[in-house]
Design a protein around this nucleic acid. Structure first.
Lengths: 335, 335
DNA sequence: CTCGATTGAGAAAACGGTTTCTCATACCAA
DNA sequence: TTGGTATGAGAAACCGTTTTCTCAATCGAG
């Protein structure tokens, strides 16, 4: 059992001395490189182990020209979407010995610039950009970086690698689920028109309805991402003669508002009307009465993929550029 | 205007050569150390500027024995509390040129261990531990680290430095606010008994009520942190003869459930009953009808303080150990 | 004019590793 | 024996900075 003495970490010189070899030999032994007698290699490794030797990453990085470090830029201060992505990135990279610099830049270009320079100075091997909006870039231009960049859940340049959830596929599954429940007249209540995902989801929704015999499209209502809007939209729909029996919502908050509004009107969910949300924001979806059926964007997996793609870029392995769309999963609950 | 050539960053040798001095002189000029003619210093700085020289942090760290890097350990996969803390840490540290390694460890001790070793190998100057629960430690022992550790929003050892919100003060303000609104009979609906914050807040609540003439304590109800429990608790309170006219809730979700339940019963908020929440989780608090008056724990500021405390520890400046309690703020809305 | 003090700048070592050579030794066949 | 070839290990250079020490040149005082 080795005792850790604060501030006195054991170096490769200590190992070399204890094993009575040169640092060159010690280094080669520990890295399984070079040529030497198997016993020598084993002895050096044993000594290193006994001494609790851990190589100084800084020194290694200096010669290896690789820091095993990447920068993570985010403008999301709230974390609802970003944190799962971050966790996935961190998890996917730690196996490769890669650590992640967290850079919360908000919307401030100067702050973003400072962070980018700080990470470049620290010689990150690559950068992951992530954000709260898929169709908005970060407040800094990353197209001329000296290291590879991957964009996850945020807008990147044409020629880069961008990883996004497959909103169309997710929305399609949601609508098909409603149809499979026997619903025929489907309405779509969603967020503001200027969000790209709003169009993607609406498009997929309309398309599935158009393709399905017997299904009728009650149209899409655009509003805000809030419960309040869910209430309003229900009021609007229920003021009309022909009412939907299935509602696909642009996110879980809207769905939450919709379900509450329906309950207040005495409409049974899922007895009379089925509702599907989007995001699988558990704290909302599980609290809704009844618990919400919704679409999960698998953000953690998306983060993991982003991390792995970046190390492939760093190590020069071939990677398909362009936009990757990762599948969403339908989470079936009671609504 | 300097052109960035990928992979060919300019070193201090380039600067020294261009300025016709030695690297020693160049280094001293750029760090405002050593002795030399003012014009020499200015010339070197100008040349460095023109060449777009940025020192290699790895090399600097190696000699300076400081990496200007800290590790951030978190077990919160959800980010509701942690992300503001992280943002605060990152913001507070970037001014000092310090970058933050993000380590999401979940509840897995092995993963935590791997991360700790990775950051120690990368020679972090210090570690910040943060978590989702104030009274639960992370799944790894940080008491024998070779670098300083600060605990933010998670349990740390006696002899360490732990930074927490002042739950008592926050709860006190909440209750005093209810009293100031003319409420006299106050109930406390809160989370599970095994959370320390639950006791802190309940204690402060009871204490303020006991100290205030004319105020009456309707008692505390313990349940889960959910809206559902808010509904249940209201049902319980309203089944009794004597009902409260002010309710202080342990978090915003409970408060949300309480407000909804009251509305469903035809009780006006804030007409008949005033409600105050805790957390200022805007996405819940602002969506509640009416918007929720609540307590903000100032988590971003807490994170900033944690970061600054850590750099003081790193640089050897005096820092009070023990538990710091940072004040909460009452956010007055309509409830 | 001389001598000590000050000034400005560079040589070299250090930080903790990796890697490319070089080289002595042992080995084998001729 | 000789000569060529593996083999095992070390010397030294290098990565990009910082820092300590040394030293020549200049300066001011006596």
């Amino acid at each position: 059992m080795s005792v850790m003495v604060p501030g006195e970490r054991v170096t490769i010189y200590d190992v070399a001395e204890a094993a009575r070899v040169s640092t060159a030999t010690a280094s080669k032994a520990l890295n399984d490189s070079g040529r030497m007698a198997v016993e020598t290699r084993a002895r050096i490794k044993r000594v290193a182990q006994e001494l609790g030797f851990r190589p100084n990453s800084l020194a290694q990085s200096l010669t290896r020209k690789r820091s095993f470090t990447v920068g993570l830029l985010t403008n999301d201060s709230y974390g609802r979407f970003t944190l799962p992505v971050m966790a996935g990135i961190s998890e996917g990279l730690i196996d490769h010995g890669v650590s992640v610099f967290l850079c919360a830049v908000g919307d401030k270009p100067e702050l973003a610039q400072v962070h980018v320079e700080a990470m470049l100075d620290k010689r990150v091997d690559g950068i992951i950009a992530t954000g709260k909006r898929v169709d908005r870039p970060l407040p800094v231009d990353l197209s001329r970086m000296p290291v590879p960049v991957v964009y996850a859940l945020t807008a990147g340049p044409e020629e880069g690698l961008t990883i996004l959830p497959d909103d169309r596929q997710g929305a399609g599954e949601a609508v098909r689920h409603l149809l499979a429940q026997g619903r025929r007249r489907i309405a779509h209540i969603t967020g503001p028109r200027d969000f790209e995902v709003v169009h993607e989801r609406a498009l997929a929704c309309a398309q599935v309805l158009a393709e399905t015999a017997g299904a009728s499209d009650a149209g899409a209502l655009y509003g805000s991402w809030s419960e309040h809007w869910g209430h309003e939209a229900v009021a609007e729909l229920w003021s009309q003669a022909q009412r939907p029996d299935g509602i696909f919502c642009g996110n879980d908050q809207i769905a939450r508002g919709v379900v509450d509004a329906l309950r207040e009107r005495g409409v049974s969910v899922p007895g009379d009307v089925s509702v599907v949300g989007f995001d699988n924001w558990e704290i909302v979806a599980k609290e809704t009465r009844p618990p919400l059926t919704t679409v999960d964007m698998n953000l953690k997996e998306l983060g993991r993929q982003a991390g792995l793609a970046l190390v492939r870029l760093v190590t020069g392995e071939p990677v398909d550029k362009g936009i990757w769309r990762l599948p969403c999963s339908l989470i079936v609950r009671s609504s």
